[in-house]
Nucleic acid binder design. Sequence first.
DNA 1: ACCGAATACCTATCGAGATAGTTATTCGCG
DNA 2: CGCGAATAACTATCTCGATAGGTATTCGGT
Lengths: 202, 202
Amino acid sequence: MSLRSALLALLSSGPMTGYDVVKQFSTSVGHVWHAPDSQIYPELRRMHSEGLLSSRPVPWGSRGATKTEYSITRDGEQALRHWQDEPEGYVRERDAAHLRAAYFEWAAPGAAATQLRAHIEHFRDQRAQALEQIAAIENRTSPTLARRLAANPEDQWERISRFKVFAYEGQVGRADQEIAWAERGLRLLEELGELDGPGERE
Amino acid sequence: MSLRSALLALLSSGPMTGYDVVKQFSTSVGHVWHAPDSQIYPELRRMHSEGLLSSRPVPWGSRGATKTEYSITRDGEQALRHWQDEPEGYVRERDAAHLRAAYFEWAAPGAAATQLRAHIEHFRDQRAQALEQIAAIENRTSPTLARRLAANPEDQWERISRFKVFAYEGQVGRADQEIAWAERGLRLLEELGELDGPGERE
DNA sequence: ACCGAATACCTATCGAGATAGTTATTCGCG
DNA sequence: CGCGAATAACTATCTCGATAGGTATTCGGT
């Protein structure tokens, strides 16, 4: 359900080709909800056949080739509104890094520290990407957002933008929390005598 | 991979029937890595046929019925150690609540606040459960942990326990972060004039 | 003894997602 | 013009997970 909601939400900013959509899932919306092209194209076609999206061929190049541009339909907008009314279906927890940490007693010397450092790196990267998205929103450099604002009355602009910033702040907060947790883990390893000493801490 | 790692890790505390394992995935380890019985039983059988687990029939009742008790093998322990050496394979982000929040402009009046309040409730519950697990570890009331400690030298007890507490602290921190985020979201809604006023805040 | 709950274990089906490809056309640079 | 990269779109296969069941036996309370 959430891929389809993400697709509707994205296309509510205006028409896009499948490829444009795929690009957005590799960049902006993809930081909140990722999907690969192999999932996106078939889903677009399904949603089209269900009436949530309409499509039209758009010229590509100067030799008669076309690409397909999708637009959200009224039914699609209805579905988008309905989505916001549905209770969130929380999935049961599956956190691989926390699972691993619970059993660090099985790790070879140094392996736990390596895992925690990699965890910190991963979430620093996630954090940086989320901050980039926030900057793009606040600086109005996101073409998708610009198009969305252009299609809405000016008194909605702050509202629309702030919800997006808020969502990415959730990603930043998540990353910060995971980094802090892993740093506490490194300190725990040090207390337990499992680090070679401050010099090995980077 | 992570279900099988979770199963190996759990069974490293000592032999268990499939049903015991399932019970643990509904309670303790299940807060970090959940799995339903329909996944667990077949996986136990697969791991048994691969030599990671051994099994034996154990009497059940007084009329000759038996149940199956699984134990980790040397190969299983090897696999557990190897898991700790493998780099974590981080999955791409798919956060339904953050996705939804990014598009709150589509929500009916009051719906966004309802979502955020439900989010807070969900993570308060998650938090409480993680704290219970921490208490069970610190109070030595977890039978699985007691058995694990009994099978290890006393100088390893603090180490083993603290890694588990550390993992659950990751869950607590996650929950805290999500609660704080959602509370900021309610304040945002208030700033945007989307809440009816302080009296409607609960 | 009966019966509901718990223990013990299982199947089927479907959706979601990962991954490793693939084909065709256009674009833009050397 | 040629060619590699980008655009544009697609398939196949497999794994993992969700969900809705199911059967059989024992336990324990009435």
